[in-house]
Amino acid sequence: MLEGKFEEASLLKKVIESIKDSVKLCNFNCSQSKGITVQAIDDSRVLLIALKIDSGSFQEFRCDRDLVLGLDLESLSKILKQGNNEDYLTIIAEDSPDSLLVVFEDKKKDRISEFSLKLMDIDSDVLTIDDMEHDCSITMPAYEFAKIARDMKTLSESLQIIITKDSVKFNAEGQIGSGSIILKPHTDMEKPDESIKIELNQPVVLTFGAKYLNDIVKATALSSTVTIKLTDKAPALFEYRLPSGYLRYYLAPKFDD
């Protein structure tokens, strides 16, 4: 049996809102040691989502036996919208479940609402992603990266990211013209999350689809900072930290013909 209680429903709501536009169907793997893990690839096979909600993200978590919950995220999102952000949220599943029970408890009122979501058998490819050294890593405020991704998409379908020791440059060239935004590393002592940190083994220039970057920044509400790891001619990793766990996106780059 699985029983996971979140202190606030908002965490799972934000996670599902962050990924449901990229992947519609996915398997939630549940285990006592790892909590909930998900790997899912978008239909175009350009963007991969790797989610880990550790048991530490829950107020209470028990999973007697490893379980796979096949979920339609659009349907789960509809059910999660029934509860308030501050409610306790408990998800419950039997050992061979055909449905997931979702329970909201209002902390002030005596109101308990229960919903049952039908589960599905989902056959999905899993990619083997080894931990690897990256050429560079940038940590920056999540809202700032979101603004850049959204603004630059209005100029071009592609966004080039150029990292050097001294700066990170976002470059877009489109039909109406071009634009660039340059950020320099700095440390904000009073608000550490406002800092911009660059770690560099070697400079990198990579180009990504603006559409996919805009899918990724839907996770902005989850974390105050985003870490972007880049390697020449390889997919990029965008990581949003959860209170205990992470939401990672792997995005395949574009290459010049």
Binding site: L48, V126, G209, A252, F255
Partner: peptide, 14 residues
């Protein structure tokens, strides 16, 4: 125009 790559060009399908 740059060409969009596919993730399976970089990672193996398990």
């Amino acid at each position: 125009t740059p060409i969009q790559n596919d993730l399976t060009e970089f990672y193996n399908v398990a």
